[in-house]
Amino acid sequence: MSGSDRAVARVHVVLPAYLQRLVGLPATTCTVTVPRGNATVGEVLEVLEGRYPTLRGVLRLPGAGRVKPHLRVFAGTRDVTLDGLQEALPEEVTSGRAELRIVASLSGG
């Protein structure tokens, strides 16, 4: 691992399938690179929204401090939805061993 690789975390993200159709994502999985010192859900969303601008306003509203009410966020199997967007992601996610999953709650019936 080079010095620059150590400075960044490669986070594997899984997005809800409905988003792929709705906002035209190429896939439901992707890998996002964030600074290791700022490996948070908020930073991952920032990079995702930069890469896919149609996601802006879809996962969260500006200033809300959390994802929209019917979405949940799992770091591996741990629910981090209520931890806040600025909490550091666990090592198993920043090392790429576990995925960061954004899950649509079963509110469709």
């Binding site: 709705l22 906002v23 035209g24 879809v58 929209k68 009410p69 019917h70 649509a104 709650s105 469709g108």
Partner: peptide, 20 residues
Amino acid sequence: SPWSEVVLQRSSDGGRTWEV
């Protein structure tokens, strides 16, 4: 929708294709 809440779509070809 409950998950994404508001999503605005637009079309420039009478509704054949759409974009967010």
